[in-house]
């Protein structure tokens, strides 16, 4: 009997992995295509697209595309700019948005429901539709720079960061998550005389690993893939991010292999961040078992 059970379990395990792997094949091919194409000369790459060869490292394989891509554009600079802007924005966003969400869920104050309704309504507004008004607005805002007060935020890092710190989605993510946290715990802390700030820092945030990871990766993706906004507020190459840099490769005679090499390079930071944050999903509230 025991042996049969063992076999059953083994078989089930195999089936599970088979299902997981089958699905994985469906999801991995854009990355395979991107990476494999980055090693191929242009004509071969284009011919391969009609068959499964597109996903295999076959034919004339070389690093030429990488070499050419680095000659065509200051890739290091673009990646640096994007990582800097994205990193700072994500950190500030996590702080401000979780703080606001904390207030919406745990605190009772005048105007709270209206403010939350407004924030959720902003989820509906596609950025494309407010880009021009926002451009006109930030071009009139003052900034204290090295040479005193300047008017206009154009051509800088802060113009790419500050307008993006707070957004409805991140606040909403935290709000929905906080609602699931045990209220009794917070009330107990209040009774023991903890300040709201202490509860936020020492109780709520340590329990929020999964949502912090989720919010961080989602915000990271949005920020790292910025295109329209930096395009209209940044004129100097010094501040350009990766997707604006992608345009360097769309010349009259497009070398698709170089584009794929460029995209492979710029995708690495996103993948790295995801893999790092993935750990946070495991270090979750579930394992602490506080939820009643």
């Amino acid at each position: 009997m025991a042996a049969i059970n063992q076999d059953n379990r083994g078989l089930r395990l195999i089936v599970r992995y088979a299902v997981l792997t089958l699905i994985a094949i469906i999801f991995i091919f854009p990355v395979l295509f991107m990476v494999m194409s980055s090693f191929k000369p242009n004509l071969q790459l284009l011919r391969d697209t009609s068959s499964l060869r597109a996903f295999l490292p076959v034919g004339d394989i070389s690093l030429d595309n990488y070499y050419d891509a680095f000659r065509r554009a200051p890739i290091g600079l673009f990646v640096f700019n994007s990582v800097l802007v994205t990193g700072v924005t994500v950190l500030l966003s996590l702080f401000f948005c979780s703080l606001a969400a904390f207030s919406f869920v745990y605190l009772n104050w005048k105007g709270r429901d209206l403010a939350l309704t407004i924030i959720i309504a902003t989820l509906i507004i596609p950025f494309e539709t407010i880009a021009i008004p926002l451009l006109l607005f930030v071009s009139k805002l003052p900034w204290i720079g090295l040479e005193g007060i300047e008017i206009g935020w154009l051509d800088s890092y802060h113009v790419q960061i500050i307008p993006w710190i707070a957004d409805g989605l991140t606040v909403f993510l935290f709000v929905q998550y906080f609602k699931d946290l045990p209220g009794e715990l917070i009330e107990a802390c209040r009774v023991e005389g903890a300040s709201w700030w202490q509860i936020y820092v020492k109780v709520v945030m340590p329990l929020s690993g999964p949502v912090i990871a989720t919010a961080a990766i989602l915000k990271f993706l949005v920020m790292y893939n910025q295109y329209l906004w930096p395009l209209i507020v940044v004129q100097q190459e010094t501040y350009r991010p990766v997707l604006v840099g992608l345009q360097y490769f769309f010349q009259l005679n497009i070398t698709w292999g170089e584009i794929m090499a460029y995209l492979t390079i710029v995708t690495i930071p996103v993948l790295a961040i995801y893999l790092v944050l993935q750990r946070a999903f495991i270090a979750s509230i579930a394992s602490t078992g506080v939820k009643g």
Partner: peptide, 21 residues
């Protein structure tokens, strides 16, 4: 000289003109 990618050059100029830049 400040160089822009051709694909988005017109958008960049129009935006800069709107912002007086």
């Amino acid at each position: 000289v400040e160089s822009f990618p051709q694909e988005s050059y017109n958008d960049s100029v129009v935006a800069a003109a709107l912002a007086g830049n």
